[in-house]
């Protein structure tokens, strides 16, 4: 069986990720290993705090996340609900449009035509999602699927570490993930809105102004907002 070898692969991956920044580095590392896609997102369905993005890579990550939370549909939500991998290789196709009538057309209009969602599960219970996406439609290769699966298993191990490791101060988010949540808090306070709306307004501003989300987050953190946080988008 290839089982012991596969476990060795995952263990090796976990140690190398630990050395390079843990879950914060995972999306970029995964994108490097699966160059056939354009971006990767790792997020956790955090009880009471909604979906929390831990790392991302590629220009579309925020739009993919945003569209899931706006529409309440999409491969991420199906994958976390069922615990199964969801491979959506053509979001423009009728099958995808009928499965996710709100999500699929928006996503393909935004230029993302395939999303491959791998649940991150602990003891078989999904805690989050490792999602690979691409502008072009088309399947994810078998090698790409195997690598993505391996990264999703590594993510589960790293998340288990995180949660048990910081018993005193609680879990520490990766640097950018923490800054993003601080920016959410700043918009919540200035705009008088809830977390989901705050995050959406930042993402919508970044998209319409064609600015990288990281730049917008950095600017928001200085409390000088580049947009009106009270204006509905």
């Amino acid at each position: 069986m290839e089982q012991p070898e596969e476990q060795r692969h995952v263990r090796r991956l976990v140690s190398s990720l630990r050395a390079r920044g843990g879950v914060g580095a995972l999306s970029a590392e995964c994108l490097g290993e699966v160059p056939e896609v354009d971006g990767v997102v790792l997020s956790v369905l955090a009880a009471g705090a909604g979906e929390v993005m831990l790392s991302d890579s590629g220009p579309f990550a925020d739009q993919v996340e945003d569209q899931h939370s706006r529409s309440g549909q999409g491969p991420h939500l199906d994958a976390t609900a069922t615990g199964d991998v969801v491979l959506a290789d053509d979001l423009g196709a009728p099958a995808a449009r009928s499965r996710w009538p709100l999500f699929a057309p928006e996503m393909s209009a935004a230029g993302v035509n395939s999303i491959f969602a791998f649940p991150v599960s602990i003891d078989g219970l999904p805690v989050g999602i490792l999602s690979l996406h691409r502008g072009a439609a088309g399947p994810l290769s078998a090698a790409g699927q195997a690598r993505a699966r391996r990264y999703s298993e590594a993510a589960a191990v790293l998340l288990g570490d995180h949660a048990t490791g910081g018993a005193t101060g609680g879990v520490v988010l990766p640097v950018y993930a923490g800054e993003l949540q601080q920016a959410v808090g700043i918009i919540m306070e200035m705009g008088g809105v809830d977390a989901a709306t705050a995050l959406h307004r930042m993402r919508a501003y970044a998209r319409h102004s064609s600015r990288p989300m990281r730049e917008v987050v950095a600017e928001v953190r200085t409390c000088r907002l580049p947009f009106d946080p009270t204006a509905a988008t």
């Binding site: 956790v44 369905l45 955090a46 009880a47 009471g48 705090a49 929390v52 831990l54 599960s121 602990i122 003891d123 219970l125 999904p126 805690v127 191990v157 998340l159 288990g160 570490d161 995180h162 949660a163 048990t164 910081g166 609680g170 879990v171 520490v172 988010l173 923490g178 800054e179 993003l180 949540q181 601080q182 959410v184 808090g185």
Partner: peptide, 18 residues
Amino acid sequence: GADAGQVRAAVAGAALVE
């Protein structure tokens, strides 16, 4: 490591702090 509920609660707690 931790179980699924602990992981989700820990990440939620960290996000709320930020």
